[in-house]
Design a protein around this nucleic acid. Sequence first.
DNA 1: TATATTTTTTAGGTTTGCCTAAACTTTATT
DNA 2: AATAAAGTTTAGGCAAACCTAAAAAATATA
Lengths: 216, 216
Amino acid sequence: MTLSEENYLKSIYSLQREHRKGVSTNVLSKYLDAKPASATEMIKKLDEKGLVRYQPYQGVLLNESGEISALKIVRKHRLWETFLAQKLDFSWDEIHDVAEQLEHIKSDKLIQQLDKFLGYPKYDPHGDPIPDENGHVIKMEKKRVSQLQPGDTGSCIGVNDTSSSFLQFLDQQNIRLGSVIQIVNFQDFDKSMTVRIEDRELILSQIATENIYVRI
Amino acid sequence: MTLSEENYLKSIYSLQREHRKGVSTNVLSKYLDAKPASATEMIKKLDEKGLVRYQPYQGVLLNESGEISALKIVRKHRLWETFLAQKLDFSWDEIHDVAEQLEHIKSDKLIQQLDKFLGYPKYDPHGDPIPDENGHVIKMEKKRVSQLQPGDTGSCIGVNDTSSSFLQFLDQQNIRLGSVIQIVNFQDFDKSMTVRIEDRELILSQIATENIYVRI
DNA sequence: TATATTTTTTAGGTTTGCCTAAACTTTATT
DNA sequence: AATAAAGTTTAGGCAAACCTAAAAAATATA
């Protein structure tokens, strides 16, 4: 499997959660920062290889073998993220780009041994579950901070936006994995929230609250 | 720099030790398992980029900036080899292929942190010196076992042949980095040697003695 | 030295993955 | 329902890195 094929599979995997009826060419190409024509081309290739279900104009979804392949890449990505954070002291925002490269290294033994070396972690540094060797993932009940009510409390388990500017913002505000977030109140006019983290209060914009995941 | 360019640079670096007047298209293409025409093409590209000195029909050599680039790749390769051997329990013969992939990952911070994590090693698992950040390498006086005389003693610091069959043979014979090898005697008819390693004697063929490096 | 052999380069082709522009479908609007 | 807008596909190109076959240069041999 080529690097490009792997990237498309992983992208379709991420997008099909929110696009249950099919990931459109447009959405997929935007996600990958490519043109729609390129996406169409690759989708057709993956379809011929039997990794996706695709009807022209109707979007694309992974089939069973495509999902297995995608989960293998996700597993590698999350194990490498864990390695970078735990062993090499990478900060949240520095992790992504490098893991994106490392996930394409081809060696079963490498991943096995890395998993062992890290102590068989269940979650990556963003709080996302790491699929096991057979592609099984722990299902988690994630909520966005924006879905909480004043008075509710949750602990931070991950983010949606992984842009480095957002991750840097979180670092600056001392919001990290496991941080306990309590909703103090909600401003209707701009949908921002005042929250308490550790012993101080701060205001998070709507954009911010929609991009932080918590477990209650 | 593309993956292919990096592979060519690294290959020229390795080959120019033994081909001081210039690495020929033929030698280079064989080393990389490609056709001579492909090598010519890439050499011309590297020449245009100012990384090598090249005269048609006269072979190719790295110039200063090419050497710096090559040493950066060698540094990455050897650090990854060290990681695989020390932290992930890879055996000698399993290391090479994976390091070959890992060496192309682009991230200065990754290499810096990896170096630190490994405790700033000076030598890789094959006994080759790891260039520092500025491309400086420790020069070592390596000898082949075949160059020793009966009575001489050396400690194993590396190998020339890195084929997995040879590395497996060394594993089986318990010859590893740091093993102390003493020459017991030399058979003239087939140029094999009887050597003592730890507390037992064994016979090494000419091929074997030519492919094991020691420091005296 | 002339010729044969080997090595190297050039010319032209292939595949992968991207692109733009034009044609075609689907969806939204009036 | 007809038309406009948006999204998708097709057609034709391009660059990188490989290839084969033929031409050209260097080296070896008679």
